[in-house]
Design a protein around this nucleic acid. Structure first.
Lengths: 277, 277
DNA sequence: AGACCTTACGGCCGGCGTAACAATA
DNA sequence: TATTGTTACGCCGGCCGTAAGGTCT
């Protein structure tokens, strides 16, 4: 039986054309490679090389062997990658969510409840989340609605309500509530990573321009130093406080108040049971 | 990088369930196998086994690795088989013919002209012969007609004419020639391995019964000790002589006289050039 | 002269088997 | 007690690199 190291050497010879060059690449002396290939040849029991005095070249047999060798080495690499990936997956809880607020909560919970696990998290739209849950990409996803498929196990996990944060001088600053259409046309500051929320303003306030900020710091700086309105939610107010120079006005559109649901595959519930207690 | 020997051991453990049993099958001591699997595990970098004090079992990772290992070993075996088969093919001239007489001639020529080659030969009908020539199963085939496809290279190689061998007492024994229909209804001795010839008597003499003999010796014995007519050809008469107690009467049907053609793929002519000189 | 392949030689390390040990059924 | 897996120990063979030889461009 040949060994993978030999096949690797064969493959290197196929790639580099001479034993010397291949030996160099493989970090071994060239006589060693010579002997190794002689041994491989004897294990095949048939000639693989066309030998002239100072030239070694492939024969038909050798070409075929080198092709096979390459496939075998690739398959071996697949094995290593696959097994390592499986191992990593078994030590990882992957959480996908539609919005940042429930995601950070879930990540914190997971890290606390499964201290040996790595927690990975992603912000995605609902469709890829459900897809990923089915394919095993995620163990847990968080949606802003209750999926009706019975293969899922599902549990309510908090609510979030979007609000306007207006400067005190704003004409609507004294209102108890506003519809989004009331603000349509006004330019607003907007944070980029807000998950599924990004679709709502765009849809309900088609005449507004949103000054999208990728960096949290930049956004806060702009909020502090301008009178542009922006969005906050009841959750961000609780966790991060209300911007100093802003008045909070709840948004009355029903879509602006959501209930989050933590979802997993029912068959894999045991793996993540603690997160549902 | 793991080695194939280790994958073989992993696969054996998967098959036999315990290290001791696997070690026994692999003809090695069991501590050796323990160490080898420990090393394999360290090369993967992830645990493959669930270890209790005196029990070793697969983990998910290990199961996956063992599946891969099996595939890799199969592929390796395919490589060995494939390369060896290719080598054998390169030392073999495979000749297929429609009839025995031109075949033995061709085999003798091939053996003489290519003394380092193994010559293999087969008797087949024309359709599988052409098929086999295209797929590389044969390098040379011999047909009773000239193929009109231009991918073939083709050369006339002798003729053969079928005759009746009648006992001197037979009513037709003094004829200069006979059509097969003249003999229709008479029972005849027939040798089994006559290639494409077998179809002719069956077709032209539907009312005859043919006493088919698989053994050459049996046929000759029956010819010598009976008055049943049989077939010979001008070639068999030249090479093996005429049966003592028989009169030769040529068959006048045009199908009973054929010209043989030696055929090879034009693109592979150089491999078998000598046979066409 | 330089590049290449092969053979010869001597050292060394890695894997082997034996033996001893621990744990289970 | 029999079976199984792991660890300890000492030996030996095979593989390695260096060196030298031969051939081709």
């Amino acid at each position: 039986m040949p060994e993978l190291s030999q096949l690797e050497q064969l493959s290197a010879f196929a790639e580099y054309g001479t034993l010397s060059r291949a030996a160099e690449v493989l970090h071994m002396s060239q006589p060693t490679l010579t002997r190794s290939m002689q041994k491989l040849e004897s294990e095949f029991g048939v000639p693989l090389f066309a030998r002239s005095k100072n030239k070694l070249a492939f024969h038909e047999n050798g070409k075929l062997a080198a092709e096979y060798a390459k496939r075998i080495l690739e398959l071996t690499q697949d094995m290593l990658d696959g097994v390592r990936a499986l191992d990593r997956a078994s030590h990882t809880i992957s959480i996908g969510a539609c919005a940042p607020m429930p995601l950070v909560t879930a990540v914190q919970n997971a890290a606390r409840l499964y201290p040996d696990m790595t927690v990975s998290s992603e912000l995605k739209d609902c469709t890829p989340l459900l897809e990923g849950l089915k394919t095993g990409l995620y163990q847990i996803i968080i949606l802003p609605y209750q999926p009706n498929d019975d293969t899922f196990y599902c549990r309510e996990s908090g609510t979030e309500a979007l609000c306007f944060a207006l400067p005190p001088t704003h004409p609507f600053a004294d209102r108890d509530g506003l519809y989004m259409k009331d603000m349509d046309g006004e330019n607003m500051l907007l944070y980029a990573n807000i998950g599924f929320w990004h679709s709502l303003p765009a849809q309900k306030m088609p005449h507004s321009r949103f000054l999208v900020q990728n960096e949290r710091f930049d956004l806060e700086e702009l909020v502090a130093s301008s009178t542009l309105p922006c969005f906050v939610s009841d959750v961000t107010i609780r966790t991060e406080g209300k911007p100093e120079n802003r008045v909070i006005v709840p948004i009355l559109d029903p879509e602006a108040s959501v209930t989050y649901y933590t979802v997993c595959l029912r068959e894999k519930l045991t793996q993540v049971k603690k997160l549902f207690i």
